[in-house]
Design a binder for these strands. Structure first.
Lengths: 224, 224
DNA sequence: ACAAAAGTGTTTTCTATACACCCATGG
DNA sequence: CCATGGGTGTATAGAAAACACTTTTGT
């Protein structure tokens, strides 16, 4: 009954900042695919859960602190790793902009952020995994209020709007969008304004975690 | 880098017949959990894909011919198998009533169908897996026209209606339901009627695969 | 003063829901 | 002839979509 299948985890971690969706990649130090960019990840240890494995690998390889993590899909095709049979459980993660900016500024490291429109060649079948993750992100954001996971604790409403237009790649009517978000009651308007460059200063919003988790539990469909 | 993690697949296969949703279980012949009911499944071989493994195990253990198969979730908790670290990739399957009836009638076998409301104790964490699968089935049927996978090629409209009322556990207005299904244009009305017992004979419907796959590709949301 | 971004309501259209009676057959 | 299940349309309410101007700041 013993098989010789190796088990890995891979993480597709998205970050967002002012109109750019980026994904976290690491440069491979060893063969195969030495020097190619790849999703962070690695072998699962016998005494750790899958989630622990993902978090450990992310910490080791990138130092990025994840904000949201869910299982994406398991890839088990026969020829996907030249070293032999390797099955990989892919995870889908989101980080807040501060984590994002931090690592992004730590240039010249072996980990880096790439705009999802401008990706390098990827090792293994990681391109395929990434595409599935992007699809999931696009899909998920329309029926679950997951977008907040990518924004700062306090954010102007226009950030949220820009996130949706970027991700869905279409214009959104600001008034209708606001109406819909308001109807969910997940946003608390704060007594604080922020002003960046010309234009009227924007109120900052926070999101109401309690209400948010309640909606998630109800499996809310909110169809942007 | 070698780990000692074993990899299995498990299948949650649903069948439907006249108001009953059933799931396919097998009785375990060996320890651990000898004689307990469990999801069909087993170890993945090194030279087969995950889907091949599921289909092989299903054929070996139950003889049931699957009609629809998708990956459900991967379970990798540390203590889930007393034999050691075993990670299981669970699949979600649907069969047509004929396959369903066939095996159901082959009584006294080691494989059997159980109404999802009347389940026995299950081995391992299979109860948890099954619950997640049921959730997925309920959810999926409301936003993807997946229900047809559980019905015969030709079926009276009332079968479809009954499937939905059973699965969603609420009454559905027949006229509104018909309107909604019709608007998807996935049903072709056939020039054939069937009559079972008293009552007006029902027209038979087939479903339009072409249109159906097109909708699936579009990720249609149809919200029953 | 003007350019740039934020903020705000109303009308129209479409979709969802509620609702009840006639039809065709078997017994 | 009656019990059983199949088949059909309309009116109302609610949700989504279309649509443009005013406010506040920086330069």
């Amino acid at each position: 009954m013993k098989n010789n299948i190796q088990l890995t985890v891979d993480a597709v971690v998205f970050g967002y900042d002012s109109g750019n969706i980026s994904v976290l990649l690491v440069k491979r130090k060893f063969e195969p695919f030495k020097n190619a960019w790849a999703l962070p990840g690695g072998f699962v240890l016998e005494d750790e859960s899958l989630e622990e494995a993902v978090e450990r690998e992310l910490a080791e390889e990138t130092g990025v602190k994840i904000n949201y993590l869910e299982q994406l899909y398991t890839f088990g095709g026969i020829g996907r790793d030249p070293r032999g049979r390797v099955v990989s459980i892919a995870y889908f993660g989101l980080v807040k902009p501060n984590a994002f900016k931090l690592t992004a500024s730590t240039d010249a490291k072996e980990a880096n952020w790439f705009n999802i429109e401008k990706l390098p060649e990827l090792a293994f079948d990681h391109k395929k995994i990434l595409n599935i993750a992007i699809e999931r992100l696009r899909g998920k954001i329309t029926y679950e209020p997951i977008g907040f996971e990518l924004l700062d604790k306090k954010f102007p409403f226009s950030d949220l709007e820009k996130l949706y237009t970027t991700l869905l790649n279409r214009e959104i009517d600001r008034r209708n969008f606001k109406k819909k978000i308001n109807s969910l009651k997940v946003l608390d308007e704060l007594d604080e304004k922020v002003s960046v460059g010309p234009g009227r200063p924007a109120s900052l919003f926070g999101f109401n975690k309690k209400r948010y988790f309640q909606l998630k539990k109800e499996g809310i469909i909110f169809e942007i």
